[in-house]
Structures are given as C-alpha cells and as structure tokens.
C-alpha cells in the first residue's frame, strides 16, 4: 500500500492505481479528455497535469493519468499555475479544432468565455484556425484507435498523415473499411463527438469528421425482424466464444433477447436473495 498526499489529503492508493484514479476515488476532480477507465492512461491531451514532488521526484509538472504513486509523494491538482497551463492548453485545443459542446463545457469550466457562435474559436492569444484538419472537432486523443485495436481487436482505425509529413505520426484518424466491423465502440468512447453512428433502414453508417467513413448492412433480428447489428460484429463476437457454445446462437436483437431469455429464467432464483437485498 502506498500513501501519498493529494491536495492536502492523505490518501492510500490501491494496487495498480494511478494518481489520477486515486484522486478521483477520493472525489478530487481532475479534468481529462483522452483518459478512459476501460483503456487506461495514454497521456496525449495533457489536461490532467498536476504539480508533483516528493522523495523520488524533484518538484515537477507531469500528467497524473500515467503517474504511479510513490510513498510520500505530494500532489497538487489545482494550483494557479496548473490552472493557467490548463487554460492555455484548452485554448490551443480550441484554436485547432471545431468547438463542440463537450469542449465548450470544459472551456467554460476553465474560465474561457470567448463564445462566438460560429462554432470556431478565435482569440488574440492563439490566433485563427489554420487550414487542414482544424475544421473538425477531433483532438487526436487516440481513444477510438486504442479501443478498436486493443479491446475490439479489429484494428480498423489508425492515425494517418497526409502527404510528405515524414516526421508526423498523427494528423487525422483514418479508417480501413475492410477491417471495420461496425460495432460503434469508437463512437462511444470519443470524448468530443467526432465519430458517430447513423442507422437508417437496414444500413449503418459510421460518420467520421462529418463524412461517411464506412457503410455496413444491418442484420435483422430473427424474432422481430428489426435491423440491429452488422454481420461482421456478430462474427467477431462468435469468434471469441467457445466453439461448443457457438452452435445454436441465432441473430436475436438485445430487446428480444431480454424478453425471451428473461422469461425463461423466471423463477430460477430463490426468493431468499431478495430478502437479503432488502
């Protein structure tokens, strides 16, 4: 067990917990964009910066999402200096992207009140939006890419670079259509709403930066014949299931599944459980 001090509170970090997680568990808010509890730390949005010092570390500014606690570590999450830096980062972020409600909300919290309603941000400090990727809200946090690669294991999304940017690693997110299974996890994790799904009729469109990146036909439910998910997604799920269980699995939408199997399970649980809950 590691004991550290965050904003004057003495806290004990659980095994494997980062400073960010420890702080959040204690109710100390640290803003983040690229952190997702299902995917772990990454460290590109730089909003979770804190001042840290202690025996193993000279006083420094570092991201808290990938900082591991050490005994005696002293962390300050909201000093005036940190808040000023966060504000500048947000301004930079806004000057590079289109302002979405998600970003505007965080900007408001940091005290950036420049609100023109054109959806773009201009300020004396950071200047105009320049050409290129900046007309979309993507902040290149990489969450969609990581979830697609590590959790879904489809690896359909990647950073891409236009032209001759040999030194560039990331300029925008691109999709390899053939690998996409249309599960929509990328849309679910995106912190700024740069990716979303549109189901119309029996067709699912994955919309990236306002443009249709992929179209996939939807499979109809065996029971209610409502389109509910893509063939590729079902295959991907089945590939992870033990082959003895695979046989006999039909295409049943979540609603019908719940209706059908919940009925079958009625009476399976002894009433004793219910008493304990009460």
């Amino acid at each position: 067990m590691t004991t550290l001090t965050i904003d004057g509170q003495t806290l004990v970090a659980g095994p494997g917990q980062t400073v960010l997680e420890t702080a959040r568990a204690a109710g100390i808010a640290i803003p983040t964009l690229c952190y997702h509890h299902a995917l772990g730390p990454y460290g590109t949005c730089r909003l979770c910066i804190v001042e840290a010092g202690g025996p193993s570390l000279s006083h420094t500014i570092t991201t808290s999402c990938n900082l591991m606690p050490a005994d005696g570590l002293i962390v300050e999450t909201a000093t005036p200096r940190i808040q000023a830096l966060r504000k500048t980062i947000l301004e930079l972020m806004l000057s590079g992207t289109k302002k979405t409600p998600e970003l505007r909300c965080r900007a408001g919290a940091a005290g950036i009140t420049n609100s023109n309603n054109t959806g773009t941000h201009t300020s004396a400090r950071t200047g105009r939006i320049s050409a290129g990727t900046s007309t979309d809200p993507c902040i290149l946090c990489g969450l969609c890419i990581r979830v697609c690669r590590d959790t879904i294991k489809a690896n359909a999304l990647s950073f891409s670079v236009s032209g001759t940017g040999r030194h560039k690693v990331a300029e925008m997110v691109a999709m390899t259509k053939e690998r996409c299974i249309g599960c929509g996890t990328c849309a679910a994790v995106c912190p700024v709403g740069a990716i979303h799904l549109e189901d119309r009729g029996a067709l699912r469109r994955i919309v990236l930066y306002g443009k249709t990146a992929n179209k996939l036909p939807l499979v109809r439910c065996d029971l209610c014949s409502r389109p509910f998910t893509t063939e590729q997604f079902i295959l991907s799920v089945l590939s992870r299931v033990d082959h003895t269980l695979r046989a006999g699995i039909g295409h049943i939408c979540p609603d019908c599944g719940r209706g059908r199997f919940a009925t079958a399970l009625t009476g399976q649980f002894p009433p004793a459980d219910r008493q304990e809950i009460q």
């Binding site: 930079l92 670079v161 690693v169």
Partner: peptide, 24 residues
C-alpha cells in the same frame, strides 16, 4: 512545427501558434 509528430496538443497546436505569432 514541421517536426512535431502531432500527438499531443501543446506541441502540435502550440508550435503552429508560435510560428503564426512570430510571423505576425
């Protein structure tokens, strides 16, 4: 700005803003 890899905000956008500002 040309060498920035483009992954984190302060460097990607910051270097562009610096160029812009010095130019102005």
């Amino acid at each position: 700005e040309g060498f920035s890899c483009g992954q984190c905000i302060p460097c990607r956008v910051g270097s562009r803003v610096l160029t812009d500002l010095v130019g102005r």
